[in-house]
């Protein structure tokens, strides 16, 4: 029996910006650099940058998203955070 370790982003859980990541504000949004994996990630909206910076203040990613975007954009931002989780830009807490 093969067990696969699938990493799944749970938007109802609390998250934070990884301690190994530096954020630099840019005109388009921000650059995120992971010092461990050496990945460079472009965050391409100001709302996403605000969301990532304030993630730690909320009990869930869903709550943090609702604080910065309208409900119609909620799923789009869940997917963006899921992508950041896959890139190890976010970590659980």
């Amino acid at each position: 029996m093969v067990q696969s370790a699938v990493r799944v982003f749970d938007s109802s859980a609390p998250w934070k910006l990884s301690g190994q990541v530096s954020l630099r504000d840019e005109a388009f949004g921000a650059l995120a650099y992971h010092h461990g994996t050496r990945r460079l990630v472009f965050l391409k909206s100001r709302e996403l940058v605000a969301l990532v910076r304030n993630l730690e203040e909320f009990e869930s990613a869903d709550e943090a998203i609702d604080a910065v975007v309208v409900p119609a954009q909620h799923q789009r931002y869940v997917e963006a955070l899921s992508s950041l989780f896959s890139s190890e830009i976010l970590s659980g807490r």
Binding site: R39, V41, F42, K44, S45, L48, R76, Y77, A80
Partner: peptide
């Protein structure tokens, strides 16, 4: 709607 996240 363009991608919000891109990685290199």
């Amino acid at each position: 709607e363009e991608l919000l996240v891109e990685e290199v």
